[in-house]
Design a protein around this nucleic acid. Structure first.
Length: 423
RNA sequence: GGAGGGGUGGCAGAGCGGUCUAAUGCGCCGGUCUUGAAAACCGGUGGAGCCGCAAGGCUCCCGGGGGUUCGAAUCCCUCCCCCUCCGCCA
């Protein structure tokens, strides 16, 4: 959520910034500002009435009987006005919240203009596209030939988009996750947590999935819970409604989680194999940062995610997303795109973002600056470190051999227990 | 799922209809004393919102919501959470 005070102080600046994310957002500003003005007017009157009522009851005990009767009557009549105004303020508050919660974050000044992926800017590359003396297969063919991926039976169990990894495929999945977590925990000093995979509405509102993207999630109507689309949600709510010690920042967390996404509207779009699925595994990196240092942290976090790809010998590129291609809550985002030679495309395996205080405001995540004064909002950041389906794709497609086997990169061997997956 | 107990300031814990601007202790911060530290003593120490250039003022918050009352941390209803016991169970 954006700071309402900022909207009041600099409506033009906010309007322009929002327009960079999409012209429609800028229009939402006017009614919001109008409601804010109405709210403050009503609130001022309400508080004056409450003050009057309070004063009456405070002097009640020592008033004489006649004055008591008058006080009772006056207080009663104030009640009606107060109740009326309270309802009005509550109504306006809801109005404001409804509108404010669907406004996206504003992009950082250094985020390039653009309306879609075409506007993204490549920042760097690592490695290069592998050369093959044969035609590299796509992972769906490799998966079938090696018996590590069984899409047909996944469909039988749950439906399309719910991959069934089998044999070495299942072990590869597990090995990748352990490899990544160990890297994040032992070498990069993130605190490992194992979060719930279901989360409530407050949790989802904090990170920005609710209310605007409710339809993108699987929901358990009866329990008021959502299947998490990313561990970002539970990780960011660890410290929701808390005031942290300044000295404890940055707080860096990592977690494995299964992730669930409806991906409705994406049917048929890059869905072959396991490029886009409803359930997948991912390790997540998440930081609660001091607001003055969050952009340094974004670089660090991005590098930490990249390290996974480097160690697995996978060619990738880092792109800075343009304003129009960024997610709802982000102020700046780097995407990591790994090269998949079988499908012949770069695939997004990680999205590393600084949300600045956007999520922190929604979740009231603060810290005491210098130990005194008003608490300040922290900045939150996160990035996948990384998501397995596309990592699985890149790994199998990149390291496939002429004989149809997959050569396992050195760092992963102790986790997988073999140096090669063969048919 | 059933029965009982309980949710108060960073923590412990009192309060059970007006004096609560929530006792007291601990913690923390500042000061006095001291070569320094400790101890002792003195003072301070939550959050949100609104008004104000500021100083400051006002409103709300004792798990959430609603009610009774001139007045609620205190009484009533309801929901959530925690603990104990029982049931079920990976």
């Amino acid at each position: 959520m954006l700071d309402l005070a900022r909207l009041r102080d600099d409506p033009e600046g906010v309007r322009k910034a929002l327009a960079r994310k999409g012209a429609q957002h800028a229009k939402a500003l006017e009614p919001l500002l109008e409601a804010d003005t109405r709210r403050r007017g009503a609130l001022g009157r309400l508080e004056a009435l409450r003050h009057e009522k309070r004063t009456i009851s405070e002097s009640f005990a020592k008033a004489d009987p006649a004055a008591k009767e008058a006080a009772r009557a006056k207080s009663k009549s104030l009640d009606e006005e107060i109740k009326h105004l309270e309802e009005a303020v509550r109504g306006i508050d809801e109005e404001i919240e409804t509108q404010a919660l669907i406004l996206p974050n504003t992009p950082h000044a250094q985020v390039p203009d653009g309306t879609d992926a075409a506007g993204n800017v490549e920042v760097r590359q690592w490695g290069k596209k592998p050369a093959f003396a044969f035609a590299p297969k796509a992972h769906w063919d490799l998966g079938e030939a090696l018996g590590i991926l069984d899409n047909a039976r996944g469909v039988k169990i749950a439906g399309s988009g719910f991959p069934l990894y089998t044999g070495w495929g299942a072990r590869l999945e597990r090995a990748l996750l352990n490899f990544m977590l160990d890297l994040h925990v032992k070498e990069q000093a993130y605190i490992e947590v194992f979060p719930p995979f279901l989360a409530n509405r407050d949790t989802m509102r904090t990170t920005g999935q609710v209310p605007k993207f409710e339809e993108d999630m699987y929901r358990l109507e009866k329990d008021g819970l959502y299947l998490i689309p990313t561990a970002e949600a539970p990780l960011t709510s660890i410290h929701r409604d808390e005031i942290l010690d300044e000295a404890s920042l940055p707080k860096r967390y990592t977690a494995y989680s299964a992730c669930f996404r409806r991906e409705s509207g994406a049917a048929g779009k890059d869905t072959r194999g396991i490029q886009r699925v409803h359930q997948f595994n991912k390790t997540e990196l998440m930081t609660y940062a001091h607001p003055d240092k969050s952009y340094e942290e974004l670089e660090r976090l991005t590098n930490d995610a990249e390290e996974v790809l480097k160690r697995l010998g996978l060619h990738y590129r880092v792109v800075r997303l343009c304003a129009g291609d960024m997610g709802f809550s982000a102020a700046m985002t780097y995407d990591l795109e790994v090269w998949a030679p079988g499908v012949g495309r770069y695939l997004e395996v990680s999205s590393c973002s600084n949300f600045e205080d956007f999520q922190a405001r929604r979740g009231a995540i603060r810290f005491k600056d210098g130990g005194k004064g008003k608490p300040r909002l922290v900045h939150t950041l996160n990035g996948s470190g990384t998501a397995t389906p596309r990592l699985f794709i890149a790994l199998t497609e990149t390291h496939q051999q002429a004989d149809g086997s997959i050569l396992i990169p050195e760092p992963l061997r102790p986790y997988l227990g073999t140096d090669r997956i063969t048919p």
